[in-house]
Nucleic acid binder design. Structure first.
Length: 339
DNA sequence: CAAGCGTGGTT
DNA sequence: TAACCAAGCTT
């Protein structure tokens, strides 16, 4: 009877998917892929990764780029602080580490946006170092194989799994071990209906033997989202330009652009923070769900009459240039109304 | 530790 | 439809 570790690695080497970031072990490419893959499905990431690498082929290219350009390349991927932290970290690697991604847990873990999972993933995949990389897949797989019923929503539970992985990980091929756990979780040991009959480590799985694989992992539920109602304006001036504004540099959708929004309870008809407008009716309702809240937007069309907007970073721009600005998906839904 | 931070797919 | 989930990190 082979070991869990041996069976897992053998399976991974044979069955792993062909993915663009698996072409080589370039630490930069591994890094980019790991950041993009945070809370994001493989199929979603693939086109973003390829386009991103084309646009920023090296650490130096990304370090030298304009932040708005990076956000534009990230447009639609979500969790935009990932992009801004990534560029901050890349700049630090260029200036403080001679453009070489550091090889120690302490150094790489100090980079912005590189947490406990990502540091292990980069060190094991790019540098073949035996460091745990515990993500949601790993916790699901190991909670079943080892019959662990701790709440995986708690941070302390992730540390428990890091300890377990440390004792299980292969010193010969830590990359295949870590990736094998994740690949197994993504393809076989899925959350809903795991394919236990096809599982390469079935004989090692305590949950399967007890018939409780569907009950694991244990995860406490999160609460419901808050609903926020906005009126969103598509304001055109006499030159046919459209009003857009840049969001604050911190918080939700930081530094992205949007059509000006006003909380529904703060709407003043005919006035958009100092800009006198003539409203021409509602043209759409856009509902956008975030992980923690919901926007319900009434989109109104309007013409600028007089005055100026007392809003930070608001400006009229030609319609053709809208595509050059990074917009959240909620506002991309409004773009078609411009033609 | 809990909350904030996106988006799209599945059930 | 609503809930859940996905190669998490920061504060």
């Amino acid at each position: 009877m082979e070991s869990f570790r041996g069976d897992l690695i053998e399976w991974f080497k044979k069955e792993q998917r062909t993915l663009p970031w698996r072409e080589n072990q370039d630490p930069y490419r591994v890094w980019i892929s790991e950041i993009m893959l945070q809370q994001t499905k493989v199929e979603t990431v693939i086109p973003y990764f390829e386009q991103f690498i084309r646009k920023f082929p090296t650490l130096e290219d990304l370090a030298a780029a304009d932040e708005q350009e990076v956000l534009k390349a990230w447009e639609g991927l979500g969790y935009y602080s990932r992009a801004r932290n990534l560029q901050t970290a890349v700049r630090e690697v260029v200036s403080e580490y001679h453009s070489e991604v550091p090889k120690t847990v302490e150094e790489i873990g100090s980079l912005k946006g590189v947490g406990p999972y990502t540091q292990g993933a980069i060190l094991s995949i790019a540098y073949d170092l035996p460091v745990p990389a515990v993500d949601g897949n790993v916790m699901r797989v190991l909670s079943r194989v080892l019959l662990v019923d701790e709440d995986i929503a708690k941070q302390s539970t992730r540390k428990l799994f890091e300890l377990l992985v440390s004792s299980l990980i292969s010193s010969k091929d830590p990359s295949s071990f870590n990736q094998g756990l994740m690949e197994l979780g993504a393809i076989v040991c899925t959350p809903k209906s795991p394919s236990c009959l096809l599982c390469p480590v079935q004989e090692h799985c305590r949950a399967f033997h007890k018939g409780v694989e569907q009950e694991l992992p244990v995860k406490s539920s999160k609460k419901t989202q808050k609903v926020l109602r906005y009126r969103t304006y598509v304001v055109e001036n006499e030159r046919g330009e459209v009003l857009i504004e840049k969001r604050p540099e911190n918080g939700l959708l930081a530094n992205l652009w949007q059509y000006p929004m006003v909380k529904e309870e703060e709407v003043e008809e005919g006035d958009l923070d100092g800009l006198k407008i003539e409203e021409n009716g509602m043209i759409d309702r856009v509902r956008h769900t975030f992980s923690h809240l919901i926007w319900e937007m009434e989109v109104h069309r309007a013409e600028a009459v007089s005055g100026t907007v007392q809003r930070e970073d608001a400006r009229f721009v030609p319609k053709e240039t809208i595509k050059n600005y990074p917009f959240p998906v909620s506002h991309q839904k409004i773009h078609p109304h411009l033609r």
